[in-house]
């Protein structure tokens, strides 16, 4: 008896091994290297080499220089996440409860955009929102947009692109949560005098919270770090932190600054996720 327990324990550790090694190799080591890079002396270059001077000043410098795109990224990410949640919830709800035998087909349609490249999908939004495109023309016709207003190269286009590109990441966990809800619970709430609106807010919504939490995380985290949407759909005043890191790294070859910004971005997201998960109280829901 004791022997088998011990063996089981050992098997458990063995099972952790491949994933653990993978993480060590492709997360822990790069992250360590990233932190190291962020602390190199800012005077370094590929010609002179990089001196490790524990230059924490790099962090101060990048916050001073790039707090605007940083805030903007959080704002765009949060806005896109909000729209994803509203649109995604309605969609996931319809698929989970109302789609009947079309359920599988609808789910396939939700992930269908993944069959084409992220870039192509984003580029197609350029056509959609073009200044002479039908969307802008229509909005101008009904006077929602003025004659000289545009959609492309505005914050709206960036947020719309983010919303569109990350919507499936919201829909799938929401669907998984909603689909798991025992429909009899909703019937029971109706039996207990909850009208459909109350039943939704008192039963369906709280039971779908695990999906809401994972969906918002899966949307918010990559959306904040995204740079493709801002690059393609934005203008000079909509650049996000991902664009800044990219240009610092590839164009300016300022590795310490790029590294410091990346670390700040990671820590910031990590902190927000921890606070969020704590407040949402997901542990209790599961």
């Amino acid at each position: 008896m004791a022997e088998t327990t011990r063996r089981k324990g050992r098997v458990g550790y063995l099972l952790i091994l491949p994933g653990g090694l993978w993480l060590l190799l492709f997360f822990a080591f790069p992250f360590y290297s990233l932190v190291a890079t962020s602390l190199y002396d800012p005077s370094g270059s590929d010609f002179r080499g990089y001196e490790m001077s524990y230059a924490f000043g790099n962090y101060v410098d990048v916050i001073r220089d790039y707090w605007q795109p940083m805030l903007r990224s959080l704002l765009y990410g949060a806005t896109a996440t909000f729209f994803c949640l509203v649109l995604g919830y309605v969609l996931a709800y319809a698929i989970a409860f109302k789609s009947g035998r079309w359920k599988v087909l609808l789910l396939v349609l939700v992930i269908a955009p993944f069959f084409t490249s992220f870039l192509i999908r984003t580029l197609s939004w350029k056509l959609l929102l073009a200044d002479d495109g039908f969307v802008v023309d229509t909005l101008q016709f009904v006077h929602i947009l003025g004659a000289d207003d545009r959609l492309l190269a505005t914050p709206f286009a960036v947020v719309a692109g983010l919303t569109y590109n990350f919507l499936p990441f919201m829909v799938l966990p929401l669907f998984a949560s909603l689909d798991k809800i025992d429909y009899r619970l909703i019937e029971a709430s109706g039996d207990l005098y909850a009208n459909p609106v109350r039943a939704f807010f008192k039963v369906t919504w709280p039971l779908s919270l695990p999906g809401v939490v994972s969906g918002t995380l899966l949307t918010f985290i990559p959306a904040v770090g995204d740079f493709i949407n801002a690059e393609i759909l934005g203008n000079t005043n909509t650049r996000m932190i991902g664009n800044v890191i990219q240009s610092l790294f590839t164009d300016a070859n300022d590795y310490p600054a790029a590294g410091a910004l990346s670390v700040i971005l990671m820590l910031m997201i990590l902190a927000m996720v921890i606070v969020y998960v704590r407040r949402a109280g997901t542990e209790e829901l599961l």
Binding site: F29, P30, F31, Y32, S33, L34, V35, A36, T37, L39, Y40, G44, G49, Y50, E51, M52, I245, F249, Y255, A258, G259, S262
Partner: peptide, 14 residues
């Protein structure tokens, strides 16, 4: 790849 690619010897001069 910034972390993995940038510099070779972490916490030492490169």
């Amino acid at each position: 790849g910034i972390g993995a690619g940038a510099l070779k010897l972490p916490f030492f001069d490169a």
